[in-house]
Nucleic acid binder design. Structure first.
Lengths: 228, 228, 228, 228
DNA sequence: CATGAATGAGAGTTCATTCAT
DNA sequence: GATGAATGAACTCTCATTCAT
């Protein structure tokens, strides 16, 4: 079927070389493309999830928003759970970025503790869906669909987001153990306030969650400054 | 078995009376039976829910455990939502009972604050599923499937469970406003610790939620005693 | 168990007689009661059907309105179909009564034809649900759940309702065959207008069904008067 | 099979073009296939409906006949109602085709009125289920499950089927208003005869609906010819 | 005759996932 | 990699009818 070559180099060799080069560049491009497309799917998923909530975010919905067909999604994510895992990972990156930004050009330990803690709290206050995300893969408060490895990685990023506060507390003179305890309690207080607030349970007590957080944080910093 | 009547009342009247009595007692018995069966369904639902979690607890599953067919459930509950509503109501009753019990024979305000708050915390610490229940009907942190009336009733029962702590704080000298704020913050702290603990997020910081709660409560009582 | 008699006639005989009398009167009363209760059920069924339509009229709904339990309905009617059969029979009685009433004190054949035909048409125009009833037991235009005997009885009552018109037409001089044909055509015209009107298909042609009926009837009477 | 390109366009561009063409042709083929499959589902639905009637034609039944699973049907139709909507639309197309065909090569107004009216009548006489279809989506004679837009579209197609008769009557000299009235009355007469005939109510009067239709149509044409 | 709990079959609909192309 | 039709199991809910009491 191949017509006789009239070229100096054999057509076959020529084409092979071209194909190799093409294959390389194509592989690279494909990888880049794949990354971008994965991103696109993730963006669609986040948009759907933030707009419709957990239940109504179906794979069909995500696919539609991403401009793909359902089947295509499975090229990028093995399951719906994995989509949510990726979403959560991304959310934690944004959280860390926010905490980092809040500290820019600030050296005073008290200030650093205050700013980082507030950044953490505000991130979830302003983006309740991100909090949902954090609790999603746990159904009835039990892990599900989360590989231990992924779980640990996510936990590490969460720790990272609280690390600046912990460091600042130590800088204020609190021993390591107490700093950890205080940060954990602060974390719990934040989560508690946010959950209660989002479920409408806090208005029940006619209290604004933000005020309560401020008060709590103030007391904590007092304790820290008093070496206690 | 019935001896001939020597009464003025005619046989017919007699029988009518007997029938009425029979009808009455039957109605009573039926009502009692219905109550018991409703209970049985509820027990099955709770068991299923505690074992399988929200998602996997289907009406089929509940029916099977209760020894009924699906259709029969709908004699007792108009919808799945109603089942959960009943489950939650019941849970809140148990919570209140527990708080009440913890105060029996205790008059010292500090003691009362400590005991009632601890009872509240322990109830949910020991029965994590009841906490889930409390947050059910909220999907993606938004209310759903809850009539406003029922929601308010449930909220009231939750408030009731925290009222003794509030009263005790006021008895310790805290003004009403501050007592409310402290109780709300305490509530948030409890919920935060419990949620974090049940999702495995607290071990992350190598902290026992129980210790943290104790510490928090201690600080709160210090504040109250210092009039502050 | 029976205490010794101190009476002249044996207690046993006495009671037997009394019981017989009681049984008789009770049977009568029961029969009357049964009839009344059947009526009550039927009234409830009609009310439900007229208010909710075919689909939403469940046995439960009927029972509730009649003040009975579901099971009790089956003492009076063997099936839901039978309820509808009875409802239809009753409807046809009302139709006949209306036609009869329309003729009271009227002897002129033209008048009689006009009045009886109009009474027929108006009955169904004013009570569309009765027309539904007439077509109910036919599903997809095929008889169902109707015993041939009942079907024939119902047909006979329908014929009865049209008989006065037929007689009047013959009185006007139309031969029997033609009178029958005209009555049938008139019947068809009525049903067609009513069905189209009830389904909103007639307004489509911007025509009031009542006017069209009047026109048709006028032409028919003209034909009859012209001996044709 | 593809000979090496001697063109200026690069292999990549070539392949892209090929892929585009492939994508295009595949899209076309898919669309065609989808259309055919939708047709197949519709055929199955019509068969089921014609055989079993409205009530017993379930989505499961349709799926089985079409050789699909239930879920697959929902790729083609969003709901059961939509299936019926499509069925009705299709039925009206066939009706219009039939009317159109009946007029081919016929110019005489009387003939045209006669033929188009008879075609209309015969269509439903021969296909009683199509009449059912026309009254479906009306439950208890009330519209249901029909979007106003679809309803209007269907009404328009029905009007279309009667338009030729209307035009012919006007051509015969009838003023527009009277032509409309006559067509409506004719429509009603047809529907009435058909409904009565299909429910076995006409045989009751020992009259063939076809004869009655002929007579009615004859009288109508007489009226038209007499300018009246 | 009356009860009303229970049945059991079935309805329409949804959706994560698979797989031949 | 992408398609999108198809699966299949599951979901909640409904209802005429039955039957032990």
């Amino acid at each position: 079927m191949v017509p006789p070559s009239t070229d100096r180099r054999s057509d076959t060799a020529d084409r092979a070389a071209t194909e190799a080069a093409t294959a390389d560049s194509r592989a690279l491009r494909n990888q880049a493309l794949a990354g971008m497309r994965r991103r696109a799917v993730l963006d669609a998923a986040r948009a759907a999830f933030f707009e419709l909530g957990m239940d109504k975010t179906t794979m069909r919905e995500i696919a539609q928003r991403a401009g793909y067909t359902v089947g295509a999604l499975y090229s990028y994510f093995a399951s719906k759970q994995e989509v949510y895992g990726a979403l959560l990972a991304e959310s934690l990156e944004r959280l860390n970025a926010r905490v980092r930004r809040s500290l820019q050009g600030c050296t005073d330990p008290t200030q650093r503790a205050h700013r980082s803690a507030t950044a953490f709290f505000d991130f979830y206050r302003e983006n309740p869906r991100d909090l949902d995300l954090g609790f999603y893969l746990f159904q009835g408060m039990k892990p599900r669909g989360l590989t231990p490895a992924l779980n640990e990685a996510l936990n590490a990023r969460l720790r990272d987001a609280l690390q600046p506060t912990r460091d600042a507390l130590q800088a204020l003179g609190l021993p390591a153990g107490q700093a950890l305890a205080e940060v954990t309690a602060l974390f719990a207080q934040s989560v508690g306030l946010l959950v209660l607030s989002h479920t409408g349970r806090i208005r029940m007590f006619e209290q604004a969650s933000q005020d309560l957080f401020e008060t709590y944080l103030g007391q904590l910093l007092d304790r820290a400054r008093n070496r206690r």
